[in-house]
Each structure stands twice: as structure tokens, then as C-alpha cells.
Amino acid sequence: MKGPIISGAIILAGMFIFLKFLLPLVTAPLPASLIYLYLALVLSGILIYGTMSASSLEAMMGPVFRFLSGKGQTGASQMARLAVLVMFPLLVGWQTYSRLVPSDLPPAENRTIHPAPPGEFVGLANPYPKTPENIMMGKGLYAAYCSPCHGANYDGKGPAAPGFNPPPANFSDPGTIAQLQEAYLFWRIKKGGVGLPVEGMPWKSAMPRWEEELPEEFIWKIIMGEYDGAHQTPRTWEEEE
């Protein structure tokens, strides 16, 4: 077995090492589901390239089939073939077992971070003008009510943050509030974690229901302060003149 098979295997293994061990050196580790996805893509690429023509197909698959069919094999290769044929079902069995065996780990989850808001909250606009005073007031309120978790730097790293999983949202990340409208933030602040729909897994969020504590005016101003402090702009659907 040589040629395309070996190089294909090297590419796959290299990709796996890159995703699993090298990438975490610079950023957070990838979840297993994503690694599987990328490896599947690489594998399909190798197969497509290998089966492009009759000769490349033979070069890639020929040795595999000759090996598996066992024609004219003797000695070591015959033993190796037998070993593969015995190992393969065992491997499948082990895979099935490890999938089914009860463990103390919670199952993988698929939490939607930004689920759809209820109709009442769609399309609301901030009724307070964006004046320096309002923004300053919002920042002050933010410092008092929000920063213990979401951090004084709007980065989700407040003193209380390490106690939560999932962690508090990082507003300076362009993937969070910059993708959302002010009305959306208004909903999330007002109704808190328990106000999430089922796909948002309301049981996981520790966000308080601020409507119990703060008047709407404060919430709107906090939103203003939040965007200003995190250097983001809310998403809009109409161009501003």
C-alpha cells in the first residue's frame, strides 16, 4: 500500500493534529463535532480526487481491494488481512459500546444563543435620544447593575463571571450585540434568562429578570451605554441619514 492511500492518510492525520492540538494553542479548543465535520470534508476531498480517473482510482483503491479480497496472499499480509477483518467488527462494537455506556457527563448540547424574540419585542426603537447625558447615565447604571458579571470593560469578564456556565456575554465581541438590534437587547434584559424560548434553554441562563428591578427607561439607557462602551453599533434595517 503506497501512493495516494498513504498521502491521503497523512493529510487526514495532519489535519486532525492541526485541529485538535495546534489550533488550541492560539484559540479555544474546537468541539469534537466540528473536528468531525472538517475531517469528513477532507476525506471526501481525498476520495473525489482519487477517483477522478481510471488510473487514479486504481492507484488509490486497487491496493485496498487486493488486500481485502486476499487473492494470492501469503504469510504476513494474509495474517494482516485476517487481523483487519477481525478487528473491524470489534471496532464498530467498541464504538457502539462507548456511545451507549452511561457516563456522568451531561450530553452534548445545541443551545441557540440568539433565539427569536416574542412578537411584542420585535421592531421597538429606543425612545430615548442618544445624548451624552443619556449615555453617561446608561454607563452608570451598567456599572451598578451589569458590570459584576459582564465586566467593567464590557468583555464578559466581571468578578462574578467565573461562577457561571455558560459565561456572561462578551459585548466587545462583534458576534454578540453588534449582530442584534436594540429591541432584542431590551427583551433579553427585561425578561432575563427565564424569558428565553425552549431552544435558548432558559434553565441554563442566570440572567436576571430586570423588569422586576428597573424601570424601562433605565433599561433603554443601559442599552445605549452598553453599545457605546463596547464600541459597537446596533444592527439596523434602515439606513441612517
Binding site: 484559540t27 468541539p31 469534537a32 452534548a108 445545541n110 443551545r111
Partner: peptide, 16 residues
């Protein structure tokens, strides 16, 4: 992303 609890904790939520 689909992630286990430990993976999600390392990523800081289900966003990588």
C-alpha cells in the same frame, strides 16, 4: 456549535 459541557466551558459558550 454542538458541544459538550466541558467544551462549551472552554469556548466560553457555544460560540467559538
Amino acid at each position: 456549535l454542538v458541544a459538550s459541557l466541558a467544551e462549551a466551558q472552554k469556548m466560553g459558550g457555544t460560540h467559538h
